[in-house]
Design a protein around this nucleic acid. Structure first.
Length: 255
DNA sequence: CGAATTTGACCCGCGC
DNA sequence: GCGCGGGTCAAATTCG
């Protein structure tokens, strides 16, 4: 009888422990997502800053155009990851492709994009073609008549505690007047929205749907990459093993 | 099924 | 006037 009771207790204990681990895992997942967002954002800003440096003057035999205060055209060069063949410049705006053309001076096709973030119709257009093997050349025309709502193709988390990172960012149009954005500011607070009230309800709805899709995809990527990582598998196995063999104790961070 | 992308056709400006 | 090239349109196709 005693042995039966103790087994029952152990099972309950393990179930409790399992729930704890699952909760912890969920929290860690959120943290990883937020950290990854921050990391991507910072990497993109670094690439952008490098794109303006003098090192880029000789790409394709052309000078990279340094934006001028009165100019409505901005050309930026973006270093691309060789594994990423999407050829999309992740600049924080939502672009809709409306055409593609093979030009004479460049064997790579030139793609034409329009900004589709503003319901009233943003006048900004973007041309994109491939420079050499590792660079995209993006040419912006016009100025955005709206704010950037999300950053660099990333999603906001739907969870209030992880929502809205960095709204205070210079758009490409801003860069026409201040290419180096001397006062680049990152709002890394994870608390409530700071500029949410400026958005229209329409934009929020569109954004929400978009973010849901992106978040789902991103989550799948995280899970896939984690399960591919032998270190993670070992750590997970250890955590499970210890939760079974050891007495309950304060939660241990896997990161 | 709606939204996004692709792609051939069309338009327009420019040089000869 | 004509041809060429760049930019845009819009129907067809693909994707989520």
């Amino acid at each position: 009888m005693d042995s039966h009771n103790s087994t029952q207790e152990k099972v309950e204990e393990l179930q409790e422990r399992l729930e704890q681990v699952l909760k912890e895992n969920e929290n860690l997942r959120s943290m990883v997502e937020v950290m990854n967002n921050h990391c991507n954002f910072l990497q993109a800003r670094i690439q952008e800053a490098r794109a303006y440096s003098s090192d880029f003057n000789n790409i394709n035999g052309e000078k990279a155009q340094i934006p001028v205060a009165n100019g409505k055209t901005t050309r930026i060069l973006v270093k691309t990851d060789s594994r990423d063949n999407s050829l999309i410049v992740k600049d924080g705006y939502q672009w809709r492709k409306y055409g593609q053309k093979v030009t004479k001076d460049n064997p790579s096709p030139r793609a034409y994009f329009r900004c589709s973030m503003s319901a009233s119709g943003c006048p900004v257009k973007k041309k994109r073609c491939v420079g050499d093997e590792s660079f995209l050349v993006a040419t912006y025309e016009g100025e955005h008549n709206h704010e950037v709502h999300y950053l660099l193709g990333q999603s906001f988390s739907s969870s209030p505690k992880t929502s809205t990172m960095a709204n205070n960012v210079h758009s490409p149009a801003d860069q026409t007047t201040d290419p180096f954005g001397s006062d680049i500011t990152l709002d890394l607070t994870l608390t409530g929205p700071s500029q949410e009230n400026k958005r229209t309800s329409q934009n929020i709805l569109a954004e929400s749907n978009n973010n849901k899709r992106k978040k789902k995809k991103k989550m799948e990527e995280y899970v896939a990459s984690l399960t591919r990582d032998p270190n993670f598998t070992v750590a997970l196995a250890e955590a499970v093993a210890s939760s079974i063999t050891e007495l309950p104790r304060p939660a241990r961070r896997m990161l």
